[in-house]
Design a protein around this nucleic acid. Structure first.
Lengths: 264, 264
DNA sequence: GAAATAGTGTCTATAAGACAGTATAAA
DNA sequence: TTTATACTGTCTTATAGACACTATTTC
């Protein structure tokens, strides 16, 4: 089915077009051992000068996911997505009043990428940079534009949970990678230290998670010493047969009740 | 912040309102030992006469979740939600062309309720009834309106997964309930048989999952015999400390790749 | 009595976690 | 040599699953 022009849509019988639709993206990466998110400094009102998640309006005949990819490219210069990138819908935020300009509904996305080069600022963003999560989810952190603080918290929690039972951690590393690389991803996202030996055992217990390349990584000169590590590439499995569970309380606490008085 | 009238919204600077916004609800329940979903027969075009998920347009100044609750009430007569009901966002569907009338974006929701009385048809729906899931997810099942087949599959899979690591199964039972009641919920949603003894052990291992009431249920006359069961009510925990895992392959298979070539 | 359902306990296989020991590199 | 990292194996404990046994009801 081909999309209709906006004029035809507007005149369609019984269809009232009251909403502006946007996409926002929580783009996570691991840099220098810290889970970080890409933020852009807003150039225009509302919230000019405030930091926000990259995003923008969906075009009238554009698919939602395509809009998320396009906005990432326009605002950050990430115009060619690295292989293995993960992109999924997070949740849709549509509280009346969340945008002072009027009724906008935002489909939030979660993306995970390897440690890519620093993005350049695009048309809509004055500046774009990665922020360590630990510098944002505190009391005295800068408040983000719109309801992006809430979206960011949702995205981080989704990522932390999803590392347990899927292979999305692989989206954070570039091939080939070592078990050390992969373990440091888990440690950065979860903010914990993991036992080398047990981590390897659990990862290898999951068929199709990682594939050994049978070679050894040369150590970088100037770095620390140590035995060269075996190299791996991403396997084909998405769901892990045996979850790699976070140490301690697997889920921190009970979720806050939603508007209906029900935990989400 | 108070919502603005639609006219003000439409004239807001730089805000083009190209989208109609709808909500759809996958309302699940367990009836006669079978996981079932509420469907309504459409009265109006498009897809008049086809079965669809209950749902409809979000009003210009209405919160999205409130719209989901309102539509359920209007279309099904479920105007007073039973206590313990669960309602959460599922995913947003916005492919251009999914609604032949023009560009509509639907925020799909997942709801779980106890075995409530048969709903009555409302204004927008000719008929409303519960359909067993097993009669819908097969090859020769009736095709639902719009992309509701896909939404339904998403909702059922979400519910099946969420029974493992949260207490949402409690949304399917009325208080007080027995371990037999609760076990039959898991069996119906997962389509498996569970060992009585081990199920009880695992449920009781989770603090705050269920609370014993210290009384015994009288057996119904006319039914099968058996020792009267202890009664329980819902506990306060939402996340389960120790997941109650499905037998066999916990996740059936790898997810199909999304538009970006990446599993969701 | 038989059949059905509920509650309790026990045994075994497996998985999780702690940790010791060996291997190979840089400085 | 010391330090740092990687790989391998072992031991203990915890959990999962199978299943036996008892308890209390209907028919």
């Amino acid at each position: 089915m081909s999309p209709k022009p906006a004029t035809a849509v507007r005149e369609a019988k019984g269809l009232e077009l009251h909403f502006a639709l946007t996409v926002d993206v929580v783009l996570l990466t691991v840099r220098q051992g810290r889970l970080s998110v890409l933020l852009v400094e807003r150039r225009n009102e509302p919230f000019a000068g405030r930091w926000s998640l990259p995003g923008g309006f969906v075009e009238p005949d554009e698919d939602i996911e395509a809009a998320a990819i396009r906005e990432l490219a326009e605002e950050t210069g990430l115009d060619r997505f690295p292989p293995g990138i993960h992109l999924e819908q997070l949740r849709t935020f549509g509280r009346p009043g969340r945008d002072p300009r009027g009724r906008t509904v935002s489909v939030a996305h979660l993306a995970m990428v390897p440690d890519v080069p620093l993005p350049r600022a695009g048309d809509d963003a004055a500046r774009a940079r990665f922020w360590p999560i630990e510098d944002l989810l505190t009391e005295d952190a800068p408040r983000l534009a719109f309801d992006h603080d809430e979206i960011l918290r949702d995205g981080v929690e989704r990522a932390r949970a999803k590392l347990e039972y899927t292979s999305v951690a692989l989206a954070f590393v570039e091939e080939p990678f070592t078990f050390g690389d992969l373990r440091r991803v888990y440690e950065a996202v979860w903010g914990v230290e993991l036992d080398h030996s047990n981590f390897r055992k659990k990862a290898l217990d999951n068929d199709g998670f990682v594939v050994p390349l049978g070679r050894e990584a040369p150590r970088e000169k100037g770095g620390p010493g140590g035995r060269p590590a075996d190299l791996y590439r991403r396997g084909s499995a998405f769901w892990l047969e045996r979850a790699i569970i976070r140490p301690r309380g697997r889920h921190e606490s009970a979720a806050p009740p939603g508007p209906n008085g029900v935990p989400r």
